[in-house]
Write a protein that binds this DNA or RNA. Sequence first.
DNA 1: GAATAAATTTAGAACGATTCTAATAAAACT
DNA 2: AGTTTTATTAGAATCGTTCTAAATTTATTC
Lengths: 142, 142
Amino acid sequence: MRQAAVANEITELVRTAGLRPTRQRLSLAGLLFSGGGRHITAEQLHAESLGEGFSVSLATVYNTLHQFTTAGLLRELVVDSGRSYFDTNVSRHHHLFFEDSGELRDVSDNSVVIGDLPALPEGASISRIDIIIRVKNGGSSG
Amino acid sequence: MRQAAVANEITELVRTAGLRPTRQRLSLAGLLFSGGGRHITAEQLHAESLGEGFSVSLATVYNTLHQFTTAGLLRELVVDSGRSYFDTNVSRHHHLFFEDSGELRDVSDNSVVIGDLPALPEGASISRIDIIIRVKNGGSSG
DNA sequence: GAATAAATTTAGAACGATTCTAATAAAACT
DNA sequence: AGTTTTATTAGAATCGTTCTAAATTTATTC
């Protein structure tokens, strides 16, 4: 009963995003949204999925991550040139980035106060503020 | 006399960075540091250099940008997955990023106050804080 | 100022992440 | 079930970037 309930929630999540609940999308959504917050790359998710016995192509992983992002289920993060991370936490927050390990950790939004910004050009508006605190030395000890 | 003075400054700059003042490095340094602050990609700088009649290979543009960055003459920015920008302003500041045009603009450091950060792991220290204010709609009008 | 040593540049190959393509398969609708 | 629509896939293609090994330039030594 427990698992079935979770499966239904995941199915609903995918449906609500306007996407057909295919085996691949459900597997990926399960991996992404069943635990706590995650910061994961396409390649990592692909490997994890195969590791769990859910076969998916890398192309589908990319498609799915983008569809989930467009639907507001994920947020895409650019920290490092050359690869994108996807964050399952889509609420307002920022990031600590451990340069050595590549690990990302959330930072509460209220640790940061943005003062007066420069005037934006006519018709422009802020779509998002990304704050990345880059940390050197020291991996996953805290 | 004017131009010669500028050329000497550029030569000194390159020397001070511990690099031999080759034709290529001087041309690129000239393009980078003779105007005001710039935010430029390797491909853009390569195109600009060729356009001015200074032939350089793309490999050399990359090498040079990295050497200048290591020497503290440039700062590398990651805004957009898949390409790096290099900023000639290496003082403490942040960025406005126009998503439509790809344009970057500096934001003074004192527009932003960082409150209490989460405790860092033993031995870790902050190497840099990057703040990117992403703006939609509206190009270079202000 | 030629000879030698050391650093630089280069074209093109190689690379890793991502996107595209066109064919096949699965899901939804009638 | 049959038809239409949407998804998945393997593999090719693309993009920005890095690597390689050879050719050139700059610095140093005599």
